[in-house]
Amino acid sequence: MQLTNRRKVVSNKEQSFAEKIYLPAIVKGMAITFSHLFKKAPTIDYPNKTRPMAPVYRGQHVLKRDENGAERCTACGMCAVACPAEAITMESGERKKGEEHLYREEKYATIYEINMLRCIFCGLCEEACPKEAIFLTDRLVDTDYERRDMVYGKDKLVEKIDQRIDVSKRQTPEVLEFKKIPGLRHNELYKKIK
């Protein structure tokens, strides 16, 4: 079976004189490299310039707070179930009296961790979340020296009260529409929980 037409039949024939003295081949090679001298480098001067990003780019997650500054996540575990990479773990706790300004629901996540080395940034957690608590943003996940530092806890994931993170960029009409499609996994799961 022939998959491409780039197949070349190798033969062991004697080299011709021109091939034996190498020079024509060398000159040809040098012409090729020389022609590259005038080609524009595709390099992007990274720290000075960044590549334009798609508006729906899926980068580092954020755990949102509501308009009063309380965490939206209720530790339902939908995101962890939806996650194909099994990157999310959490532990839930009960909200005490007087913590209403901190947590929106009666149950909240005491520990919420995403392993950024496992995450494939598919965005299924965002789709799965019934509380609109987790979103992927256009921020890049920084590199680090230690594996354990790549497991992001609530300290890195929950947005700061005074530094809200805009997640509306990703919520284009198409994305919002997509989230409503019945039969999507998160909608099914959501129905079951209800």
Binding site: F34, H36, L37, K40, A41, P42, T43, D45
Partner: peptide, 11 residues
């Protein structure tokens, strides 16, 4: 070398 390989080299 960088120019020949479509790179930018030390900058």
């Amino acid at each position: 070398a960088a120019f020949l390989q479509d790179r930018k080299g030390p900058s």
